[in-house]
């Protein structure tokens, strides 16, 4: 399941849905939050822009790649857009599989690809009320590159 939405999500509901599939023996979930500090700046709010026509397609493609690499029973990706406040949930990735190895790997893979391939952009507002676009991190690209070596 893939969802791009402005509303919040409930981790318990998403987890419960994932563990219902038959044969599921492991569920790994990741949740990304709005940090109060980024690159030394005190943050007060975050806005997420996206490319609506492409976003779900890009996420579906990432999930498809994960499914071709590991044996997965079910996958959920939820990404929020619009105005978010400190400590709000931004993103949820949940993976259900027979055994933990596939779920751990696929969850990290999906996040690493999402970070560098899905068309979302963050704009931060700092404690002085100044807004600016967040720069992409080199470390996100390195995180992606490790999957090419496997």
């Amino acid at each position: 399941m893939i969802k791009v939405q402005s509303e919040n999500f409930n981790q318990q509901i998403e987890y419960d849905r994932l563990r219902q599939a038959s044969h599921t023996g492991a569920v790994v979930t990741f949740t990304g939050l709005v940090r109060d500090i980024n690159q030394g700046e005190q943050i007060s709010a975050l806005t997420l822009e996206h490319y609506p026509a492409m976003t779900e397609k890009a996420l579906a493609d990432i999930v498809k790649q994960a499914q071709s690499r590991w044996s997965l029973i079910d996958t959920t990706v939820i990404h929020r857009v619009g105005e978010l406040q400190l400590l709000d949930q931004i993103v949820f990735v949940g993976v259900a599989s027979l055994h933990r190895g596939d779920a751990f790997a696929a969850c990290e893979f999906i996040m690493d690809y999402l970070k560098t391939q899905a068309p979302f952009w963050k704009k931060e507002t700092n404690s002085q009320g100044e807004s600016y676009w967040v720069d992409a991190r080199e470390s996100d690209q390195s995180a992606l590159n490790k999957w090419h070596k496997v």
């Binding site: 490319y51 397609k57 890009a58 493609d61 990404h79 931004i90 970070k115 560098t116 952009w121 720069d135």
Partner: peptide, 26 residues
């Protein structure tokens, strides 16, 4: 057409081309 591509890709009428900075979601 909503799929990541590159500068050498060919274009034809009706295509939708999007340019953007490195993405920062997640």
């Amino acid at each position: 057409n909503q799929t990541i591509s590159n500068k050498t890709a060919t274009l034809s009428s009706g295509d939708e081309v999007a340019f953007f900075p490195p993405v920062t979601g997640g």
